[in-house]
């Protein structure tokens, strides 16, 4: 199981710098961990390096419930709310 970065991330980049396997990269609104690359620092450090480096406790073992919810928040990545012009309108 990999680690994840929650929305407490303040974009400081400390984790990206510390990660021994370069699993961390900046995203559109916060840093993210590539679950396919993260090895939980197994064989590198006793404590995952991102957890050690993060000043706001945003790095934690990945929780599927959190990641699923984060992806599905209605306001992020949902279909746009489209308001179409009034039909009775004549020339602009």
């Amino acid at each position: 199981m990999a680690y994840m970065i929650s929305c407490e991330c303040i974009n400081c980049s400390a984790c990206e710098y510390e990660c021994p396997v370069r699993a961390i990269a900046p995203g559109p609104s916060q840093f993210t961990i590539d679950a396919g690359v993260c090895v939980e620092c197994d064989g590198y450090f006793p404590l995952p390096r991102c957890v050690y480096a993060c000043p706001v406790n945003a790095c934690a073992p990945a929780r599927e419930s959190y990641l699923v919810k984060m992806r599905s928040l209605a306001s992020r990545g949902a279909a746009p709310l489209r308001l179409t012009p009034v039909q009775t309108q004549t020339s602009p």
Binding site: S75, L81, L83, P85, V86, Q89
Partner: peptide, 19 residues
């Protein structure tokens, strides 16, 4: 303002963040 735009034929998409 929203009504004014719609009356004048402008389409408005909310919750539409460009990526």
């Amino acid at each position: 303002v929203r009504d004014c735009l719609l009356e004048r034929g402008v389409e408005i998409w909310l919750l539409s963040r460009v990526a």
